[in-house]
Design a protein around this nucleic acid. Structure first.
Lengths: 267, 267
DNA sequence: CGCGCCAGTGTGGTCTGACCACACTACCAC
DNA sequence: GTGGTAGTGTGGTCAGACCACACTGGCGCG
């Protein structure tokens, strides 16, 4: 299947509101085209299932199958009852869909954990570097709050890990790149189980958490100091260090390239 | 999954085979747990919809909604009829799900096109660097074939672009990182429409395509020469160059960091 | 005996109609 | 005016019924 363009590709590109071998795909395409045309935008309500069913000439079950997909993909939120907040409402929360995708693919052995870690390494290293180089200093308030919360001495490891994950996500969000932020959320979700399992292999949690906290501070510090090289190196060591400590994940990639960016285009 | 508003970290983790406010979620969780336990693996057939329905005590429609999600996410392939290839079969083809996710999120304005391009830049630059540094020289045969195909003089622009996309995907696949390969496939799918639209803004297609072909050769050449720095710089310039030429997408990130991998701190 | 056709069977795909729980709305009694 | 209640429309779920399809097996013909 790894052949050239369009081998599988679940949804064809007919674009037409109709068409589609399967009825539910027609619904998906209809919604997509209305989204692309600007007819539908985040915040809008989709027609009711029965209305959509009648409008497209398909059964309600088919409409529901499509809506289910949209819901899992983080495109809509459904709410029973009546009133302004009821029905299927367009939202754009990719992290949910990304998380579901990653978790299931890991479960089905579609994504090796090592690949996820390596991808995290690449993305986070790049994010740290970008944050450090960002001209208008990025807003790290959320990250700071999380670091403070992680200093609380009575956190159980799993709580600490949750804060840790949120901290890394906060950095990605601070970069302003929504694709990276959502991808990071998904990656983390995919390896969550493994990170928790790795917890058991840590001998001295106190020492490890202290080290992690220190590394976190160092990363934020490097970003604030606009020291991209240091930020990249630190975050790379931080991530690969944790996985090296908990379970064997060949990090493969070199610690990190030095920055030396060209002066740079504005943005 | 409706974590839109509140802190989204840990949510949707019931894990239990049962549970789940909605019936279709129970099915999803059941499949996921069987996947995690190794009870189900790629290549296996899921029980029939009717059997699953009876087994879990939910209606067939609910089972179907869950299967639809699994199908879109690239986890299963369904085939009507009878025989060994019929039914719902576990596969692990994340690129399909990733593509659907990206396309729809872009359509719903959940993902700005600029962020996708920036992410592509980061991933591809890293991939090029890794390929150049890979100890057992990576297999670039697929990439070579695509480059040869792109030399054909009678390609229409859209065909050329399709080959171009496949070439970039081939590089990602050569890196052996499935997460990156799938992500790249998704990213490309999300901006496909924009790339095609940008085609119209190119004045001299012949010159542009010649330049692209030359840049491609240069990238592969740098990788073969194990010149990571050059590979990174070239691919960064290649990608940002095309988008700069077709439509305004602030590439933001600096051309690319120089390599200087761990082992040999040359320079 | 061998080959080809065809009913049988089980699968996913779809539709229909029904019921439930819920949330909001409107109305009516006090 | 205030309170509660019936009404209405939504998604959520279920049950049953077809259909198209692909494979299986047996039957009949050569």
């Amino acid at each position: 299947m790894g052949d050239a363009a369009s081998a599988d590709d679940a949804s064809a590109r007919p674009v037409a509101t109709t068409a589609g071998a399967r009825a539910w795909q027609a619904v998906l395409e209809h919604v997509e085209s209305r989204l692309l045309s600007g007819d539908l935008a985040p915040g809008d309500r989709l027609p009711g299932e029965r209305a959509l069913s009648a409008e497209l000439g398909v059964g309600r079950s088919s409409v529901r199958e499509a809506l289910r997909v949209l819901e899992v993909l983080g495109l809509i939120r459904t709410q029973a009852g009546s009133g302004p907040s009821a029905g299927a409402i367009i939202i754009a929360t990719p992290s949910g869909g990304m998380s579901a995708l990653m978790r299931l693919q890991v479960a089905a052995h579609g994504f090796p954990v090592a690949d996820i870690v390596r991808t995290r390494l690449i993305l986070e290293t790049a994010v740290a570097g970008e944050l450090a180089e960002a001209v208008p200093a990025p807003d790290l308030a959320a990250a700071d709050r999380l670091l403070d919360a992680m200093d609380s001495p009575d956190l159980v490891p799993s709580e600490f890990l949750a804060l840790d994950a949120t901290f890394h996500l906060a950095l990605a969000e601070a970069s302003g790149n929504q694709v990276i932020a959502a991808t990071m959320a998904g990656l983390r979700s995919g390896i969550e189980g493994y990170a928790l399992a790795g917890l058991a292999t840590i001998a001295d949690w106190g020492a490890t958490s202290a080290r992690l906290r220190h590394e976190h501070r160092g990363i934020v510090e490097a970003i604030r100091a606009a020291d991209a090289a240091s930020a990249r190196t630190r975050i790379h060591g931080h991530i690969s260090g944790y996985y090296a400590e908990t379970f064997v994940v060949p990090t493969a990639a070199p610690p990190t390239p030095t920055p030396s960016p060209t002066p740079s285009p504005a943005r």
